[in-house]
Structure formats: structure tokens, C-alpha cells
Simulated scan of single mutants.
Amino acid sequence: MSSETSKPLWLAYTGLVLTPLFWAGNAVVAKSVVGEIPPLSMSFWRWVIALTILLPFGLPGVWRQRRVIREHALSILALATFSVAAFNSLLYFAAVTTTATNIALINATIPIMVALLAWLLLG
């Protein structure tokens, strides 16, 4: 295997390891601070911080695709509302009454549920 093909493979494995680590870390942090910070505040500030960090990298692409984004603005808004805002808010509300382990286990089932629902609804 050449070094050119091993680098993307290494990056892929790194991403596969870091993704669940970040999700689990999110559950642990949520559980540890839920008594100090209200769930909706956690969700809001999480996305403000993420936007602040990612905006410089993503804004040029968003600007280039502004026409497509404008055409699909309602769909994008619906997806953002349910998949980002509601999901994280519900996760942080769950942290009030359950353990970080339970939150992480529920999060781990999401890809399976998405595939199952896609199969049931879309064939």
C-alpha cells in the first residue's frame, strides 16, 4: 500500500473513532452540567459555539451555493429544526432524568433506526 492511499485510510479510521467519542463526550458533559445549565441553554450555546468555529470554513461554500440553498430553504429549515435543534434539546432534557450511559446507548441506535425507517418508508 502506498503512502498516498494509506493517508486517506488513516483519516477515515480516525474519523470513525472520534465520532462516537465526541457523541459519548456530549452525553457525559450534558449529564455533568445539567444541574447548573438548563437544557435549552446548553443546546443554544452548543450551536452558537459550533457556528462560531465552523462559520469561517463553511461560509465560502454556503455563499457559492446560495441559490440552491434559497431554493430549498424550507426543507433545510425543517431538517435543522428536527435533526439539530430538537434532537440536542431532547438529549439535554433526557440528561435530567437518566444516565450518560443510557443517553449514549440511545444515540448508538440512531443509525440502525434511520436505516430501518428508510427501508420501511422508502423500500
Rank of each mutant, 00 (worst) to 15 (best):
L40M: 15
T14E: 03
I110H: 09
K7Y: 02
T98V: 15
V33M: 13
I37D: 04
W47D: 01
R64F: 03
A95W: 09
L55W: 01
L54A: 15
E71F: 03
M113Q: 08
T14F: 14
Y13A: 00
I49A: 12
A27K: 04
A78Q: 08
A50M: 07
E4V: 13
W23P: 02
R66A: 11
W47Y: 09
L16K: 00
S3Q: 09
W10N: 02
T5R: 06
A24P: 07
L117G: 06
M1H: 03
L55D: 05
M113A: 06
I103K: 07
R70E: 09
A73T: 12
W47N: 03
A27D: 15
L121N: 09
A73W: 15
N26E: 07
I37L: 11
L90Q: 06
L77I: 07
V29I: 14
F87N: 10
V96H: 13
S6D: 03
G58H: 01
P20N: 07
P20W: 04
A94D: 08
S75N: 14
A94Y: 09
F93R: 12
L105R: 10
F44Q: 04
W45E: 09
S83N: 14
V29C: 12
A50P: 03
W63I: 08
E36I: 15
S83L: 11
V33Q: 14
L55T: 06
S83V: 06
P39G: 04
K31M: 04
S32L: 10
L55I: 03
W10P: 00
G15N: 11
